[in-house]
Design a protein around this nucleic acid. Sequence first.
DNA 1: CAGCAGGGGGCGT
DNA 2: CGCCCCCTGCTGG
Length: 476
Amino acid sequence: MGDGGLLSLSWNNHKTTFCHILSSLREKERYTDVTLACEGKFYPVHKLVLSTCSEYFESMFEQTPCKHPIIVLKDLKSDEVESLLNYMYAGVVNVAQNDLARLIKAAELLKVKGLAVPDEPPPEADSKKNFSPARGSREDPTSPPPKRRRREESGGAPGDREHREQHVTVSSPTASPRTSPYHTASSEYHQDNSRTPNEAHASEHGSEKSIDRLEPDVRSEPTSDTKHNQHTPARVSSPMQVMLDETLVKEEIMDPEDQDSLMNCGMDYGSLASDGRIENATTDGATQDHQGQMLPTKYEPQPLGPSQSHHLAESVVEALAGPSGMQGWLGGGGDMGGAFAGVDGYGGDSRHQELRQGLQGQQPQAHQMAVVMNFEEKHSRVWPAVVGGCPKSTVGYEENPEGHVRPWTSHIKKFECTYCSYFTITSTNLMNHMRTHTGEKPFACTYCPYRSTQKGNLKTHISKHHLEYAALRNGQ
DNA sequence: CAGCAGGGGGCGT
DNA sequence: CGCCCCCTGCTGG
């Protein structure tokens, strides 16, 4: 190094290796810090990947201090989520031709880069965009070019191997791993895929642009244009999102007409509706009627009323409840009711100004409401153990040998710190916590200058340092 | 090991 | 509901 020679060390297989490792980590649920829930299925994934591949998630995570949020994608299908996750992790995913439009629309809802970006000529030969920095808006010229290409741009490869199966080749090597231990049904995309994962893997290694194999007739297929159609039969709206994280429960009411304020406050939930197509698709009333969580009055930072909290609970239950019967997993309606009865007042009582600023005075839109529940990081360790049981029943956690309590009923907290995002269910805990901010140490040791924020700590201190004196005093 | 901080049960008002 | 108390986990020296 001393001779000044500059060596360029190149990792030839960096991209493929990187993607493979990422997918492996996902498969092993290693370092996962966010869980997507859809139709009763859970997908432990990484914020980094989601943020990288989706401005939607990036903005969400930026504004949500949750350590391990659980995001319920309400208006998406589990297979769509699986495909999008596979796409984000591997850069490719297999999708049945008939499901292409649906997948694209889902990608647009989540602003998945490469899929959600409207077709436009790529500025240059691209590599995997999914792992590029996620900064920039969709209008950003530096944003990744769309992966879906028109036939003119696909290098004229009509009728290749993927097409014969009527599959859009988006299959990835790592798309094969189970998306979740709670996965109850394998993706149809893979079931229909004749290629083995290894073959797919090899294919990906051979070409980073397997998406280019999108067949011309696939794109010319009528359904492929539904992403530009505002009134597709398939109900596609802004996904109801429930983020379970630290204790906090919020209802975020989004008004598509107030995108600016939403942007200003950093919450990009409304961006889903910023797209006119999607927005219109959701304003046909079907979504609202279906979800029934629309709050009739404008959002106010006030505790939720009974009916509102009921709607909140319902929304969460409904969001978490999938075909596999997540109601049972959640412990039954009664328990859930109790759980969310305990969160009354969380709808607007939060002091998270950054979340609230852009929401005040806005007319609520049910399809744009996001319910944000915070789940403390510590509990995220309980969470996998809890949900590790059968998602279809309550056995998984009610009788779990570790004695884990029901997360929804035991970790919903009511008191929040004005200095940080801390929440607790008891005022005492909050008082103790507040002392950490104020520096108040009301408990002074009578034998030394030691002071403590908690009496118990002082007692411990005395028992360890001044036990003799304390015994003498007690004896006198 | 000591201190800090959080969770939660128990009890009285 | 507030307070007391105990227990527990984490962290830094």
